[in-house]
């Protein structure tokens, strides 16, 4: 494992910690898209089916369980916790995420490495992860004002994607048979979605001002 991959995993983990912190400390999930969070649950459950079939390392197994567990906990809080669910901005979270699930699944049936149950679900999870942030980004744009922790959450998620691209570049040049075009192309698309957000994030950081997205 190279340093970029590790940095990617850590920023991914930090983004989840930031989100859990926001929900637990403020007992509020305002500004957070439940639809994006539900998509992440589907992404992790579909991708980590290999928990039952392949063992790669203790690190991988633990991280997979943490991602599945934390995403389930977040959705549970937003749907079931009495105080938290009252703060959910349902009227701002109207993205029709079922289309993303359907589209990703159809794409996985067409584009995959092998036509097996596990490989189809793996490709599906990759495509779905690429678009899963969209409901959240649309919600941020609609609400305009982004609170600090929500901004940090999306920033760390974007950083995770950026580090994974550096990791692939590194692996491409250091490993003889590195080819995984499905993951790399989807990863590029996914990272591109964050470009706009990053632009405004850095402007607000430079001006030491609150993060605001144009309507």
């Amino acid at each position: 494992m190279n340093i970029f991959r590790f940095a990617g995993d850590m920023t991914h983990l930090i983004s989840i910690v930031v989100l859990l912190l926001k929900i637990y400390a403020t007992k509020s999930c305002s500004g957070i898209s439940l639809k994006t969070q539900e998509l992440y649950v589907i992404v992790f459950l579909a991708r980590y089916l290999d928990l039952f079939t392949d063992f790669i390392s203790v690190y991988n197994t633990v991280m997979k369980l943490v991602f599945i567990g934390s995403s389930l906990a977040i959705v549970w809080c937003m749907r079931m916790h009495r105080a938290v669910k009252r703060t959910y901005d349902k009227e701002l979270d109207t993205f029709r995420h079922y289309f993303l699930v359907l589209g990703s699944f159809v794409l996985a049936l067409l584009l995959h490495e092998k036509f097996t149950f596990q490989e189809i679900f793996w490709a599906f999870s990759i495509y779905l992860e690429a678009v899963a942030i969209l409901p959240q980004l649309v919600m941020l744009q609609r609400s305009g004002n982004v609170d600090n922790l929500t901004g940090q959450y999306v920033f760390f998620l974007g950083a995770y994607r950026a580090f994974y691209i550096l990791n692939w570049i590194y692996r491409f040049f250091t490993e003889p048979h590195f080819s995984r075009w499905i993951a790399c192309l989807s990863g590029l698309v996914q990272t591109a979605f964050y470009a706009d957000f990053f632009y405004y994030y850095f402007i607000s950081w430079k001006n030491n001002a609150k993060l605001q997205l144009p309507a």
Binding site: H12, D54, I56, N60, F67, W122, Y164
Partner: peptide
């Protein structure tokens, strides 16, 4: 036969 590449990323 080529050994299958394990999906070692998260």
């Amino acid at each position: 036969t080529e050994e299958e590449e394990k999906k070692d990323e998260l």
